[in-house]
Design a binder for these strands. Structure first.
Length: 297
DNA sequence: GCCCAGGAGAAGG
DNA sequence: CCTTCTCATGGG
């Protein structure tokens, strides 16, 4: 992987299977905003950057980042060492439904996000819609988070740490408009602090089965089967984890003929047909159904 | 007013 | 073990 430093950012050559719209608008992350030129600016691991991709030249540009940070953070964050071409080929074989879904979101990459941030984000996500989830998380960062400095003419904030959130009160969270999820969040933060932050980090390491990881995650208040699957998938590299939400239920019933509320059957179908790539398959399906144009008659 | 959103916890069988 | 009810909030 060739990385060139241009002073205030870096360019990476020969990046394929990458599209910023697919990556940042497939529901896996909530802290990236699209700029007028099509690039996205956001914050992760305490760094505010801007990401653009040249589809013709296969060049990924990360502004406000160093080559050192690329090796340390961004290479892994964007999952650049995984061969998505081969995975897409395998998933599409003998599955016309998946082939069409992959065509719509061909540049998706499963991000490796911060575990704590992902836990917080998906507790907030429950029974909520994506625009409002983004507002809640941005508000939480601005109210209680840490400053990551000035960039592109404004201040950027990380989410509050577990320690800060564990000491916060419902009144502190009131401006964020989290609704009934606020008390879940405080409860989860207190558990993370009580057991030590390392525990959450350790969960991401190999050695545990995905089922063990999901079970551990479900011990946090506000984390059930679906939210646990998202945390495992989007921050712990468990790409076999298959989150089943209302949208996936729609896809699975419409396209694969499984009864609308039969979550068990959907999980079984995913395990059998998508296997170790269930989470990636799920993202293609999710992207397609959440971006399909309404049919006008 | 209704229904819905990347659901989960609590209560009641 | 299972099913049903409830939980804030804002947009359509």
């Amino acid at each position: 992987m060739i990385v060139r430093d241009y002073g205030n950012g870096i360019k990476i050559e020969d990046v394929t299977d990458f599209h910023v719209d697919h990556i940042f608008d497939c529901g896996q992350c909530f802290r990236w905003e699209k700029n007028e030129d099509g690039s996205y600016s956001g914050i992760a691991y305490g760094r505010a950057v801007t990401v653009a991709y040249d589809d013709a030249r296969h060049i990924l540009q990360i502004d406000h980042a160093s080559a050192k940070d690329f090796e340390l953070i961004w290479k892994h964050y964007f999952d650049l060492e995984r061969d998505y071409g081969a995975i897409k080929e395998q998933l599409a074989a003998d599955d016309p439904v998946m082939r069409r879904a992959i065509a719509s979101g061909s540049g998706i990459r499963i991000l490796n996000q911060e575990k704590w941030e992902t836990l917080v984000s998906f507790i907030i996500s429950q029974n909520n819609n994506i625009p409002r989830i983004k507002k809640c998380i941005a508000s939480l960062a601005e109210q209680l988070g840490e400053s990551a400095g000035l960039y592109r003419g404004r201040m950027w904030y990380s989410l509050p740490s577990p320690e800060v959130l564990a000491k916060a009160t419902l009144a502190d969270l009131a401006p964020c408009r989290l609704g009934y999820r606020a008390k879940y969040l405080l409860e989860a933060a207190r558990q993370v602090v009580a057991e030590g932050k390392e525990h959450l980090e350790t969960l991401g390491e190999p050695g545990f089965s995905t089922e063990e990881v999901l079970e551990q995650l479900r011990s946090y208040c506000g984390v059930g089967p679906k939210v646990a699957s998202c945390i495992a998938l989007f921050s712990m590299g468990r790409i076999d984890s298959f989150p089943i939400d209302t949208w996936v239920k729609k896809v699975m019933s419409q396209m694969y003929g499984i009864r609308e509320h039969d979550v068990q059957a959907m999980a079984a179908y995913a395990a059998q047909h998508f296997g170790e790539y269930g989470g990636i398959a799920q993202q293609y399906l999710f992207y397609e159904i959440t971006h399909q144009k309404p049919v006008d008659k």
